[in-house]
Amino acid sequence: MNFVVSYEVIRLPPKWVHPYSLHYDIECNNLYFSDLLNQTINRFDLNDNQYYLASIEGDIAPSFIIPLEGQKNKFVISDKRTVSIIKWNGIDHTATVIRKLFTVETEEINANNNWNIAKVSPVTCRLYGGTFRGNLCSSEPGGFASLYSYSKLGGVKRLKSNFKISGGIDWNVAKRLFYHIDSCNLVIREYCWDPKSGKLSNGRIVYKFDNFGDSGLALLGMTIDKKGYLYAASYLGSDVLKINPRTSKLVERIKIPAEAVASVTFGGPNLDILFVSTDDRPFNITTGGISTRDISPLSGSIFMVKGLGSKGYPGRKLCIP
């Protein structure tokens, strides 16, 4: 494992409450993200270093925002267990829901579940994403979270289930592999991915996270670089873990000056900047409430990590006719 610090961590002011689900749009050099607890969608324009935010009409608390392909000012967002299309010009302080696409986990036992992270698949432009339980990793009774895919023609498909938190996802396109974080079980699984059908098969654990006996630590967001290394957000661990899934080894700990590291993505014109979001009001993973841990005054910030010597992929837009 590499302990030599050869990178630079730069904070991007201001602070947020729960900046999450980072999505980099390379066409306009913009970073989109949600703020679940503040109930906003947000855009950071890297061309002029300006932030723009909006609330969505209807008291909606989105966990992700993804642009639509070929449809200006339209995005897909989550609202509890529903996924909808909204219209936002990227400047005004209000966005409007155009229509609902679908809802999952409608059973009463899942009433407190919520959408978590979502991304668009390469090649086939499907939406993949998962949910989390309201009481997170608690041992208390309740529903279970699942991992889903969605396309206009195929509809909603439940791919995997029986999670408490369905965490970060990403693809190795060349090898047709899919990676998924099972946050409460502290593992990353690798699946064979069929681009045509979207199905996942032959799952195996490629990394087991050692939380050193601290049940408050978990892995949440994740991204992949062009060499196939995974970057997983260590929630309340103050770092991003660079992992080699081929050897199941931890390659590097990228230290972040805030505890609740929540999501990661590559961005910038050359896709060589790792953007990292952190929580100002972190969750207690073991109970589902708000954590009482002492946190850094920089918590709630988004950071840029430069000098990693790695390049990733831009965010993909969802194809909806």
Rank of each mutant, 00 (worst) to 15 (best):
F266V: 01
W193R: 02
V83L: 08
F275K: 00
A233R: 10
L12E: 14
F3M: 14
I256N: 02
D45Q: 06
N113S: 14
H18L: 14
E27H: 10
D280S: 14
R253I: 01
D59K: 14
N270W: 00
L298W: 05
S151F: 04
S149F: 01
C125H: 11
G167L: 09
E190V: 05
W193C: 02
V9Y: 01
G228P: 00
R204T: 06
K74N: 14
C319S: 15
N162T: 10
G129H: 08
W115P: 04
I41H: 01
D272T: 06
L36V: 15
S296L: 05
S63V: 10
L12D: 13
P195H: 07
A232R: 10
Y7A: 09
G288Q: 08
N49E: 15
F283M: 11
P122H: 11
C319M: 10
W115C: 06
H180C: 09
P314M: 13
I117Q: 12
C184E: 10
L36S: 13
Y20P: 02
A262E: 10
L12W: 13
K100Y: 11
A260L: 08
F132Q: 12
N2H: 04
P314Y: 11
H18V: 15
L298Q: 13
S6E: 14
I320N: 00
N211Q: 11
P321W: 11
I60R: 06
F132W: 05
P62M: 05
Y51C: 08
D279N: 13
R204Y: 01
R126A: 11
T247W: 01
L12I: 15
M1S: 15
K306E: 09
Y51M: 13
G167R: 06
Y128T: 05
Y235N: 01
G213L: 10
V156A: 07
P67N: 12
I188P: 03
L186S: 11
S34W: 08
I320M: 03
H23I: 09
S138I: 04
A233P: 08
V123Y: 08
P297R: 05
G221I: 06
L318T: 06
N270A: 03
P62G: 03
I86C: 03
N113P: 07
G168T: 00
D25Y: 04
D170T: 15
T106R: 14
E259T: 10
I56W: 01
E8F: 07
V97W: 00
W115F: 14
S21V: 04
G300D: 12
P67C: 12
D25A: 11
S63W: 09
V206L: 02
M222W: 02
G213C: 09
G155Y: 03
L37M: 12
E190L: 04
F275A: 01
I290K: 06
L298S: 12
T103Q: 13
V5Y: 05
T292V: 10
C28M: 13
V206T: 02
K199C: 10
Y191A: 00
K306A: 02
D170A: 08
N110P: 06
L250S: 00
I302C: 08
V4G: 03
H93E: 12
R176D: 12
R316S: 09
I66V: 15
I98H: 04
G90N: 08
K317L: 07
L37R: 12
Y7M: 10
V240E: 04
Y150R: 04
D210P: 00
T96V: 13
